[in-house]
C-alpha cells in the first residue's frame, strides 16, 4: 500500500482499461489484494442497460412522434413547442411544485419533532414509534386505496362526520383534493423521515446537552441551539428526498383523484402517464419525462455536493 504514491497515474488508467489486473505486477503490492474494475462491470452493464439506456432514449423519443405501435419518427422540437403552448402542462408544473412545497412544509417540522421525540429511550416512546412505523409497511398503492375508501363520500368517514367535512365530497373541489393528496403523502412518508431524524438525534453527543444544562438552558433552547443545528445534514437529505418524491408522486394521484376534478390535481408525472398511456402520444410524454429527469438530476447534484458523498474518495486515501 505504501507503493501507491510511487505509481504514476498513467499506470492506474491502463490498469483500469485492462480490467485492473496487469500481468506480472501481482507481486508489487499495488494490485495484489485489490479488485480491478472488472468486479464492478456486471452491475455497471446491467444498470446501464435498464436505467441509462432508457434515460438516453427518453431524450431521443422527446424529439420523435410515436404512437406506441409503428416506429418512432423524428419530428425535431415539435413536442416541446406543443408543450410550451399547453396550458395543462404549465398548470401541472405549478401543481407539482405546489404539492412538493406543501409536502416539505408539513412533513419537515412534523418529522423533526416526532424524530427528536422518538429518539428518547423511554418505553412509551419506543412502543408508539413502532406503531408510527406501520404506514411504511404498506405500498403506495395500498395506502392510496385505503385512504380512498376511508374518505369515500358515501361510505367513508366524511359521511359520518359532516360537522368536520361539510358535504363530504373531498374529491370534488380543487383545494380539498390537494389537501387530501398532501395529507395522504404526509401520512405515508412522515414515518420514513421521522426515522431519519430519530437516528440523527440519537447521534448528537450527550455532552452538548449536559453542558447546556449546566449553563441553564431549558428544553426549548436546547432544541433550537443544539438539536436543530446538529440535524443540519439530515434536514438537507430528508428535504431533498421529499422534493424528489414529491415531484414524482404518481400512485396517490392516479388512485385518489385521477388528476381531477377536471385537471385540477393533474401533476406533471401523472400528466406524462396520461399523455403516453391514455392519449398514446409517447413523444410528448417523453418530453415531460426529460423535464422530470432534469429537475431530479439537478437536485441529485445538489445532494451529492451538500451531503459530501462526492468526498468519499478522499477520505479513503491513505488506506
Amino acid at each position: 500500500m505504501t507503493t501507491t504514491s510511487l505509481t504514476p497515474p498513467a499506470t492506474q488508467r491502463r490498469q483500469a482499461a485492462s480490467g485492473g489486473r496487469p500481468p506480472g505486477r501481482s507481486g508489487t503490492g499495488t494490485g495484489a489484494s485489490r479488485p480491478g474494475s472488472a468486479w464492478a462491470a456486471p452491475a455497471a452493464v446491467f444498470f446501464a442497460l435498464f436505467a441509462l439506456v432508457p434515460l438516453v432514449l427518453v431524450a431521443a423519443l422527446s424529439l420523435s412522434s410515436w404512437d406506441g405501435l409503428s416506429e418512432p419518427e423524428f419530428v425535431g422540437l415539435d413536442n416541446w413547442k406543443k408543450l410550451l403552448d399547453d396550458p395543462v402542462m404549465l398548470k401541472s408544473l405549478w401543481l407539482s411544485v405546489l404539492l412538493t412545497v406543501l409536502g416539505v412544509a408539513i412533513q419537515t417540522p412534523l418529522s423533526i419533532l416526532l424524530g427528536v421525540w422518538a429518539a428518547g429511550h423511554q418505553r412509551n416512546r419506543a412502543v408508539l414509534s413502532a406503531i408510527y412505523f406501520v404506514p411504511l409497511l404498506l405500498s403506495a398503492t395500498a395506502v392510496s386505496v385505503l385512504w380512498r375508501a376511508v374518505l369515500d363520500p358515501n361510505f367513508g368517514v366524511p359521511a359520518q362526520a359532516a360537522w368536520l367535512f361539510g358535504d363530504g365530497n373531498l374529491f370534488g373541489v380543487q383545494s380539498s383534493a390537494i389537501g387530501v393528496l398532501v395529507f395522504v403523502s404526509a401520512w405515508q412518508f412522515t414515518p420514513l423521515h421521522t426515522l431519519i431524524y430519530q437516528g440523527a438525534a440519537r447521534a448528537v453527543p450527550q455532552v452538548l446537552y449536559q453542558a447546556a444544562r449546566i449553563d441553564g438552558a431549558g428544553t426549548v433552547r436546547q432544541f433550537f441551539h443544539i438539536t436543530l443545528p446538529q440535524l443540519r445534514n439530515s434536514i438537507i437529505t430528508s428535504m431533498i428526498l421529499m422534493v424528489v418524491g414529491g415531484l414524482t408522486t404518481f400512485e396517490t394521484v392516479l388512485i385518489l383523484t385521477q388528476g381531477g376534478p377536471g385537471t385540477d390535481t393533474t401533476i406533471s408525472a401523472f400528466y406524462m402517464y396520461q399523455q403516453a398511456f391514455k392519449s398514446f402520444d409517447y413523444g410528448t410524454a417523453s418530453a415531460i419525462g426529460v423535464l422530470l429527469v432534469l429537475v431530479a438530476t439537478f437536485i441529485s447534484l445538489i445532494m451529492v455536493r451538500l451531503s459530501g458523498y462526492g468526498k468519499m474518495r478522499s477520505t479513503m486515501e491513505g488506506l
Partner: peptide, 11 residues
Amino acid sequence: LAIPSQAVIVP
C-alpha cells in the same frame, strides 16, 4: 439515486 422511475417509463 435520483432518476425517478416515472420519468423513464416511456422508453
